[in-house]
């Protein structure tokens, strides 16, 4: 079996991996969609485009932002649908019964999933250890996890923005990250919130979560230190092959990761493990 067992260990916070890349989209559609101000690399969207346009998978399951912090899970089969879902996610979009029903009734064979580390853990378990006969194990082809330091308790965070900055949830158009600040674009302009202040509104469950990069995924992706770049961690041979193919076919530009980006991702991953130890001991 190609898959390596996951061991969560602060000594080795990135877990098992086969390769780490610095990636940048080479796809004009993605660049256009993200706009010139965007600091991420758009690599995940580009990989998804590659997977769908080259027929490697039949569909991708991905979260799309509906409004402000709210989102929905969609099963995207076309490049247009994928492009629409691009961009960072600030709240978790739950998997629901509808997803299983759609996946089992739809005529799709291989599916790539993009989710957060907790969802990657679930998907890995479904794929490797199907505890239910109705699990869609066979359809899970590739699991992509986004880096995650925690997700917001949506109501709490929105209320904070409203009280402190007088921006109501309906007015929020976009939220992005810039250095140590959250940039909230709204109909009347934009506000900048120090990340430190926003942390209070993380979900409690996220505080006990030890997984920053998505140890259970085939491929983990997150923002690199260098603006405009995505850090990719491949954990299986399959993921490695896909990343290279996406690069060979002109969707991605790959380069060696810089030491500073690596140092930071390791630091954050370790920080999340240590944070989880601390909080977990209070709930046992």
């Amino acid at each position: 079996m190609a898959y390596q067992p996951v061991v969560i260990d602060p000594e080795n916070p990135l877990g098992y991996y086969t390769g780490i890349y610095l990636a940048q989209t080479a796809d004009e559609r993605v660049k256009r969609k993200l706009g010139p101000d965007y600091k991420g690399g758009g690599a995940v969207t580009s990989i998804l485009l590659y997977l769908v346009e080259h027929g490697v998978v039949d569909a991708v399951v991905v979260a799309r932002r509906k409004k402000g912090l709210y989102g929905e899970t969609i099963i995207a089969k076309t490049p247009e649908e994928i492009l629409e879902a691009t961009g960072p996610k600030w709240s978790i979009v739950p998997y629901t019964l509808g997803l299983r029903e759609k996946l089992t009734s739809m005529d799709v064979g291989r599916v790539a999933f993009v989710g957060l580390p907790c969802q990657a853990q679930f998907l890995r378990q479904v794929k490797m250890f199907p505890l239910m006969e109705s699990d869609f194990s066979k359809k899970i082809y590739l699991i992509i996890s986004l880096f995650c330091m925690g997700t917001f308790a949506v109501e709490s965070f929105l209320n904070y923005i409203k009280k402190s900055y007088h921006v109501s949830p309906d007015e929020i158009e976009n939220i992005s990250i810039n250095g140590d600040e959250l940039v909230v674009k709204h109909v009347r302009g934009e506000i900048r919130i120090p990340i430190r202040d926003a942390l209070f509104h993380l979900q409690h469950g996220c505080l006990t979560c030890p997984d920053y990069t998505g140890l259970f995924a085939d491929l983990s992706a997150g923002k690199a230190l260098k603006p405009g770049f995505t850090l990719l961690i491949t954990r299986t041979k399959l993921a490695d092959k896909i990343v290279r193919e996406a690069s060979n076919t002109g969707y991605l530009k790959l380069s060696e990761p810089d030491e500073e980006s690596l140092r930071i991702v390791i630091e954050k991953a370790r920080e999340k493990i240590m944070r989880s130890y601390k909080y977990l001991s209070t709930v046992l």
Binding site: P94, R100, Q119, V126, G205, T208
Partner: peptide, 21 residues
């Protein structure tokens, strides 16, 4: 206990559909 983050794993793991979001 307030530890749920709402990932939806449980809902997709119930053989009798006893969990809903």
């Amino acid at each position: 206990n307030g530890l749920c983050v709402g990932c939806g794993a449980c809902v997709l793991s119930c053989p009798t559909n006893a969990l809903q979001m």
